[in-house]
Design a protein around this nucleic acid. Structure first.
Lengths: 204, 204
DNA sequence: CCAGTTAGTAAGTGTTCAATTACTTACCAG
DNA sequence: CTGGTAAGTAATTGAACACTTACTAACTGG
């Protein structure tokens, strides 16, 4: 009748990271909409109640996961963008890095799709939107620099070009989720980016 | 204690159509993941149990809704494609029709996002995939014809171009759902399509 | 070393939901 | 007009789930 001794005892900080990690995994295997706190607990070897020692609500977990995505994805994209010798190569590096990130973490697009399916403007959605805004800024910087250097058409619709850039990647995610596989994502991304580059050239 | 007389008594065929309609509405207002059979019944002025006189399971309802989308969207796109005087104008008409369809039925992308969030290859997903395959065929036809007429680059990567075409639209949906509004969808679609057209031209 | 804090367990609680059941009544073919 | 079918109601069932509570035990600073 007495509770068994706690298996392991870790700091909230560590457990939170473990929980985020578990959710990322489960997002791919179970699907975000079907993840329960029992699933998460079992994944960590804990009881269900223990999860609530580290997050007040389930929603708080989703928000933390979104935070993980924001920091990891954006910093990776920033890194490859600034490492590239030219703006156009920067765009390509960002495009491919993003594609590879999604292929490596298929739980992430699933997670976001699950959020977008809700009509309300949830905190998680707001966070995703702010992430996309930072992303746009990065793209606009690269596009402006490319235009200055004459690598793309003068007078290019840069806002539209940024929308198409992100949109093309989101479309590739969509198609990967539809195929229930990210196997072909990277190859498709390569072809699509070639076409994208063509769209930035001087109109004839 | 005795049941009230049934308010109205309609054929299963009619009720199924009503249910599909209600789900499309609720998909936008409540969100597909949160729709319950109680919601659906209330929307029709029926009791919850009545819903199961017309569909064996809730999943069967989703499948029927997906069927509605497939037939309505594809036939509309086919129509504008064949009505267009040139293949390129056909592409434009399809692009804009698709954007307008989504803006008019915001429940549809939400519905699909909800499905894509699941890792399993559900019947609904399979149906969506077959729809996308028909869509691709339509695009490939237009692109091949455009190439024959010299309206696009000879040797264009048509498969990639089809992927980018659909992907750009899916990206626009994504961004509309992220904004929780389809208000700007059509305007964005216009800008994005201009750039898309540029991508099809002869590389310099 | 020991008192306070915190991470854990075990066992609820209240609710929500899809599907079922038993019964009723409208409609329609013969 | 009548008997069979099918669309409806009302009530129930059983499972799942987020979150809570009461208690236990491990770690940590003074």
């Amino acid at each position: 009748m007495n509770p068994l001794p706690a298996r392991t005892r870790l700091s909230t900080e560590t457990r939170q990271a473990e929980i985020v990690d578990a959710v990322l995994d489960l997002s791919d295997t179970v699907g975000p909409g079907a993840i329960t706190t029992v699933d998460i607990a079992r994944n960590l070897g804990l009881t269900q109640g223990a999860v609530f020692k580290h997050f007040p609500t389930k929603d708080a977990i989703w928000l933390a996961v979104m935070g993980w995505v924001e920091s990891h994805l954006l910093s990776a994209l920033d890194a490859v963008a600034t490492a590239a010798p030219t703006p156009l190569e920067g765009l390509q590096a960002v495009f491919m890095k993003h594609a590879r990130f999604v292929a490596k973490h298929p739980g992430v697009p699933r997670l976001i799709f699950n959020e977008l399916q809700k009509p309300k403007d949830t905190p998680v959605k707001r966070r995703a939107r702010s992430m996309q805004e930072s992303y746009r800024k990065l793209l606009m910087r690269l596009l402006a620099e490319a235009e200055k250097r004459g690598e793309v058409a003068a007078g290019l619709d840069r806002e539209g070009a940024a929308t198409l850039f992100i949109g093309a990647l989101q479309g590739l995610m969509f198609q990967a989720m539809l195929a229930s596989s990210t196997a072909k994502l990277e190859a498709e991304a390569k072809r699509v980016f070639s076409l994208y580059l063509n769209a930035l050239r001087e109109p004839s």
